[in-house]
Amino acid sequence: MGGREAPLVLTLASGSPRRRALLEALGYPLRVVPPGVVEEPLALPPQELALALARRKGEAVAGEWVLAADTVVELEGRSLGKPKDLEENYTFLRWLSGREHRVHTALYLRTPKDLVVEVHTAKVRFRPLSEEEIAWYVGSGEGLDKAGGYGAQGLGMALLEGVEGDFYTVVGLPVARVFALLWARGFRP
């Protein structure tokens, strides 16, 4: 029977619809497997926390080609994860209003030949927000499942004044870096 190789499939160890959509937009054949890892706060600096969580997610999923990621928002050395409720979302946005913060997205890429674990950072500036604007955004519910309590690619774009670095790092997946890593290893969309 002909020796045709089975097509490569990238296992995405994530339940994030944003990460899935970004990889699908590039044409990667995906198998999505949410890792079922609890993202409990660990006593680590923000960059190390992102790395630890991405590694934990990637190691929880089987497959030859596995990609996991985790995003942590850092404000003055403090990690802001996903808000636990609307009140915490409101608090996060008050803290971020008119200020600059960092967004760290860590990658875990396991291939048949190697393992890459790295973190990428972008700076984000929020414009000064009124209480009414914060209430509008929090009321949308969009920020509840996002690190820092906002989504730069959705309604949250109205909150931003600027981004220094890779915008997709802020969204939750440094797409150009993932593409380059996969391409260099012979995995083509």
Score class of each variant (00 low, 15 high):
Trp136Cys: 14
Arg94Tyr: 05
Leu26Asp: 11
Ala68Glu: 02
Gly165Asp: 04
Gly2Met: 07
Leu107Tyr: 01
Gly63Pro: 05
Val163Trp: 12
Phe187His: 08
Leu159Lys: 07
Pro41Asn: 12
Val175Ala: 08
Gly139Met: 08
Thr11Glu: 00
Leu115Ile: 05
Pro128Leu: 05
Val163Phe: 05
Lys82Asn: 10
Gly2Ser: 13
Trp95Ala: 13
Leu12Gln: 04
Glu100His: 14
Ser79Glu: 07
Gly2Val: 05
Glu87Phe: 12
Leu155Asn: 03
Trp95Phe: 09
Pro112Gly: 04
Arg102Val: 09
Gly162Asp: 10
Arg56Tyr: 02
Leu53Cys: 10
Leu42Gln: 15
Gly36Met: 05
Glu64Gln: 11
Leu22Tyr: 02
Arg55His: 10
Leu129Thr: 03
Ala147Thr: 05
Arg99Trp: 03
Arg18Lys: 13
Val116Cys: 12
Arg78Glu: 15
Gly58Trp: 00
Lys113Ile: 03
Val73Asp: 11
Ala54Leu: 07
Tyr90Lys: 11
Leu115Pro: 02
Gly165Met: 03
Gly148Asp: 02
Pro45Asp: 12
His104Ser: 02
Ala25Arg: 15
Glu88Asp: 06
Gly27Trp: 09
Ser14Thr: 01
Arg20Pro: 12
Ile134Arg: 06
Thr91Met: 09
Glu131Ala: 14
Val66Asp: 01
Val171Met: 08
Leu96Glu: 06
Glu5Leu: 14
Phe179Leu: 15
Asp166Arg: 03
Ala106Gly: 03
Glu24Thr: 03
Trp95His: 12
Glu59Ala: 00
Val138Phe: 08
Gly143His: 00
Glu5Ser: 14
Glu24Pro: 03
Gly162Met: 12
Pro174Phe: 09
Val66Leu: 02
Leu8Gly: 00
Leu159Pro: 00
Gly154His: 04
Pro112Gln: 01
Arg127Ile: 08
Leu49Thr: 06
Arg94Trp: 07
Thr91Leu: 14
Arg20Asp: 10
Ala6Gly: 10
Leu173Phe: 03
Ala54Thr: 05
Pro41Met: 13
Leu49Ile: 08
Leu144His: 06
Arg188Glu: 13
Arg99Cys: 04
Glu24His: 04
Trp65Ile: 00
Thr71Arg: 04
Glu132Lys: 04
Lys84His: 13
Arg125Asp: 00
Thr111Ala: 00
Arg20Val: 10
Arg99Ile: 01
Glu164Arg: 10
Leu80Met: 12
Thr91Glu: 15
Val103Ile: 11
Leu181Val: 08
Tyr137Ile: 07
Leu53Asn: 09
Ile134Cys: 10
